[in-house]
Design a protein around this nucleic acid. Structure first.
Lengths: 330, 330
DNA sequence: GCACACTGGGAAACCGCTTTCCGGGAGGTC
DNA sequence: GACCTCCCGGAAAGCGGTTTCCCAGTGTGC
C-alpha cells in the first residue's frame, strides 16, 4: 500500500508539498518539485486514500441514493438520472435498495450518515404510516443537523427538498381523457393502499370521475408490481376501462386479459402510469401518464446539492399519452 | 457533529471503552459502563464516522459494482443480485455506470481503489480492444496488489475471478433448436462487433449453423440496444428466422416488423438472448436463451469475497426457451 | 541599501476512530 | 497470606491524509 509519505520520500519533498501537488490545493508548488512529485506518484502507482482524505477534509465526495427496487425500471430510470447528474459534479454514488421495506430505508439513512456522504436522495413513494415516517424524518433530521443535505422524489412528507410527481393530478387528467372517450364503467388496479404513490394516483382518478358525475369505479387493491396487476385484473368485472396505477401493473393486467381471451382494447381498455421506456414496445401500446423520470432524478440531486434554507418542493406534471390500449366507446 | 469523544466524556469513560462498546470489539466491557456508554450514545445521537473507522481499521465495508447501463434490465438484474448478496454480508454498495465507455470503467476502478473498497465487481461485456483491456487490467492489478479483491461478469480476460455466461454455446444451442424447426435462412442482428458478448453470441450462432451444413446467415451489425435491433431488422431480407443477440434488441426488431406489417412468427421468427423478466409479457412471447442473471450477480460477489489464490472462472449455462415468437416451418 | 510584502517549502497539529500496551483489582490456588 | 491469572479500564500510538503556522529566500519600491 503506497502512501503519500512514500511518494514524498521518493520525491525528496515534505508530506505537505506532496499533498499540495497531488490532491489539489490553493497553494502553488514550484514547477520542478511538482514534476518530481508527480513522477514519484506515477512510478509508485500512488492512489490517495479517500478515507483519510474524507477524515481530514471533513467532507466526502460521495452521495447516497436509496431506491425501493433497482430491477423496477421506474427506479432504474430515476436512479440513472441522478447518477448522471452526480457524475457531472464529480461525485460518486452509493446505491441502496430497500426491497420495499421502510425499515431498510431508515437504516440506510443512518448508514449513509455514518459515511458522511454529501447528500442523500430518497427515491420512491412514502408509506402511509405516520410512525415510520416520523422515525425516518428523525433520522434524516439528525443527518441534516450534522451538515448533510437530503432530497426526496415522492411525497413531500419529510421536510426536505422534494421532487413531487403530480400523481393525483396526472391520474385525474387521465380519468378525464378516458371519460372523454365515452367510458363510464371503470376499475382501478390500485396497488397497496399503504403506498402513498398508489394511493394518490387512485384517489386522483376516483375524484376526477366523481367530478364528472360518473359512477364510482371498482377499486381493487393488490401488489405494486407486475403480478399485482395480473391478479387484480381477474376482478375487474364489467368495467370497460381499467386504470393500473403503474405501467408494470398494467402489463400484468394485459397478460391476464390475454390469457383469458379478453381483447384489449376491444373488450376492455387499459391504462397505466409512468411511461416506462422499456415497455413502450408493448402490444397493444400502453396508454399512460408520462413522467420525465431521468430528469426528476437529476433534479432531485440538484436540489439536494444547492443549499437552500427552506426546503423546496418541485411539482412535476405528468402528460397523458393516449395509445392503442384504450379505445373510444361507440 | 457528535464524536466518540463526546460520548465517552458524557458517559464518563475513556475513548477506548466507548469504542469497544459501540463499534464491536473482541474485548468485554462491564455491564454498567456498557449501559452508560450506550445511553450517552443514544442521547447524543452518535453516528460513528465511517471514514475514520475505515482509516483506523484499514478496511472498509463497501464494495463497488461497475455496470454499463443501469436502465438496461440486464444490468439491473445482475446488479440487484450482487446487491442482495452484498446486503447479506453487511456490505454497502457503490454503483458506477460507464454508459458503455470503457475509459469510464478504468476510471472507476481507480476511484474505487482510492476508496479502498473491499471488492470490485466489473459487470458486463469486455470490449475487443487489447489496448483498453490491457490498461484496465493494469488498473485492476494495482488494486489487487494493494489488497483489493475483484471479480467480473463476462469474458475471462482480466485475470480475475469470472462468472462467464456461455454466450457462444447458448447461441449455438439456440441455433440448433431453430434449425430443428426447419429454418434454413437466418439473419443475425449482431450488435457492435467491438462488444465481446455480442461477438460471442453471433459467432456461436453462426458456427452452429455451419456445423449443421446450413447456409451462412446474413449478419447485420448495429447498436446493442432497442434501437439497434429496430434498425437492423430493416435489413433481414428473406430470412425466415432472425436471432437478435439480446432480448432488448429483439424487442426492437419486433417493433420494426410490426410497423411494416410483417407478422411474427408467421412471416418471420424472432429469437433473443437473456430472458429479461420485464420483457416476458411481450407479444408474441420471445424465444430466448435464459441466463440466471440475479444468481450470476450474487455469485460474482461471492467469488470476489472468497480469497482464492488462482482466479476462478465459472461457466454459466444458458437454457433455450422456445416461445411463440418462433414457429416451425412446414 | 533597506524595509516590506510575497512566494513557496516544511514541521507539526489535527481529523475520529481502533488497538496495543500497561496497570490495578478481583478471584483462585497452594 | 503470598503469588499468579484473568479481566477490564485507560493512555497513547497510530491510520493517511490536510492545513495552519512559521520561516527563508526573492523581488519590489523608494
Amino acid at each position: 500500500m503506497v502512501t503519500l509519505e512514500d511518494v514524498a520520500k521518493q520525491a525528496g519533498v515534505s508530506l505537505a508539498t506532496a499533498s499540495r501537488v497531488l490532491n489539489g490545493s490553493t497553494r502553488q508548488v514550484g514547477a520542478d518539485l511538482r514534476a518530481r512529485v508527480e513522477r514519484a506518484a506515477y512510478e509508485l502507482g500512488y492512489r490517495a486514500n479517500i478515507a483519510a482524505q474524507t477524515l481530514a477534509r471533513g467532507a466526502s465526495n460521495v452521495i447516497g441514493i436509496v431506491v425501493h427496487d433497482l430491477t423496477d425500471p421506474y427506479f432504474a430510470a430515476l436512479a440513472d438520472g441522478a447518477m448522471r447528474a452526480a457524475a457531472g459534479e464529480g461525485l460518486l454514488v452509493m446505491v441502496g435498495t430497500t426491497h420495499r421495506d421502510p425499515e431498510q430505508e431508515i437504516a440506510y439513512v443512518a448508514t449513509l450518515n455514518a459515511q458522511r456522504v454529501r447528500a442523500v436522495l430518497l427515491v420512491g413513494s412514502r408509506v402511509a404510516d405516520p410512525e415510520v415516517t416520523e422515525r425516518l424524518r428523525g433520522e434524516l433530521d439528525r443527518y441534516r443537523a450534522s451538515g448533510g443535505r437530503a432530497a426526496c422524489v415522492g411525497q413531500d412528507l419529510l421536510g426536505v427538498d422534494t421532487v413531487a410527481p403530480a400523481n393525483h393530478e396526472g391520474a385525474a387528467a387521465l380519468a378525464r381523457s378516458l371519460a372523454g372517450l365515452g367510458h363510464t364503467r371503470f376499475a382501478v388496479l390500485a396497488g397497496p393502499p399503504r403506498l402513498m404513490t398508489a394511493r394518490d394516483r387512485c384517489a386522483g382518478f376516483v375524484s376526477a370521475l366523481a367530478e364528472l358525475g360518473l359512477p364510482e369505479p371498482r377499486v381493487i387493491e393488490g401488489r405494486f408490481d407486475r403480478d399485482g396487476g395480473y391478479q387484480a385484473a381477474q376482478e375487474t368485472g364489467d368495467a370497460t376501462c381499467v386504470f393500473a396505477v403503474n405501467d408494470v401493473m398494467a402489463v400484468g393486467a394485459l397478460a391476464a386479459y390475454r390469457e383469458r381471451g379478453i381483447r384489449v382494447p376491444d373488450d376492455v381498455s387499459v391504462a397505466g402510469f409512468d411511461d416506462i421506456a422499456t415497455l413502450r414496445d408493448q402490444v397493444p401500446a400502453l396508454t399512460t401518464v408520462r413522467l420525465p423520470l431521468q430528469d426528476m432524478g437529476a433534479r432531485a440531486l440538484e436540489l439536494a446539492l444547492t443549499a437552500g434554507e427552506e426546503p423546496m418542493v418541485e411539482q412535476v406534471a405528468g402528460e397523458v399519452v393516449l395509445r392503442e390500449s384504450v379505445r373510444a366507446l361507440r
